[in-house]
Design a protein around this nucleic acid. Structure first.
Lengths: 113, 113
DNA sequence: TTGTTTGGTCTAAATTTTTAAACGATTGCT
DNA sequence: AGCAATCGTTTAAAAATTTAGACCAAACAA
């Protein structure tokens, strides 16, 4: 029997990350940031064009993505450049969680309680 | 430059799955189903105890989990047993998507446009 | 048949999330 | 200083999600 307590914390720790990835508008932002060669990043105004959203709405989604540790920002004068975090540890954590789940699923049924 | 069109479809195809995994109550349901040795599965009434939710609420979450292909159900008379799908292809798809993203992130910056 | 158990659905209420208008703060330009 | 541009925040409205009460249908037992 696998460690369900740890699995529980793995799940809750990744909640924000999963929710952040689930939204279509945020997916569009992520893809736009991936399209940029991550050199300079994109500004809020650029992303309003991509998402067809108002600037405050984009700002809101950027905050969610930031809290999920997906993106970072850099200021140059009045302009803020957003770019994908170079090393997203949540990605590794999520892959690990998925492996744990599949492991439990596959072994279940073999060991008769 | 990676195929962003494919990445886009990968993301949208996994939206339901990601949203389903993001909710705490649904995570509790998943863990409860993992705890069961997947032999007989759990019924709605069992899950109301686990989640401290009303039956209609649990029923609602189960529907979402079902649409995300995470769980299946089996009927025996009046009782319905829910269990985790034995083979969740979304898990493989998600791991693949995560690999694609990391690949793009890591190669970006090297190739100067 | 009658009553009980199980559980889905319908409906509406409560909550959360998403959105944008208005405002303010900062930077840079003239 | 005065003006324009950029963008975060606050606020409130709109939209979506979550929740539970009430109702209904099917299966089973007495």
């Amino acid at each position: 029997m696998a460690d369900l307590t740890q699995l529980k914390t793995e799940f809750t720790d990744l909640s924000d990350f999963l929710v952040a990835l689930g939204d279509e508008k945020r997916q569009a932002i992520i893809i736009a940031l991936l399209a940029e060669n991550a050199c300079h990043g994109l500004r809020v105004t650029d992303l309003t064009a991509v998402t067809k959203l108002s600037r405050p709405a984009v700002s809101h989604h950027l905050k969610i993505l930031k809290q999920a540790h997906l993106i970072k920002s850099r200021s140059e004068g009045t302009r803020n450049y957003y770019y994908l975090s170079h090393d997203i540890k949540e990605i590794r954590a999520l892959k690990q969680l998925l492996d744990h789940v599949t492991a439990i699923i596959e072994t279940s049924g073999r060991e008769t309680k």
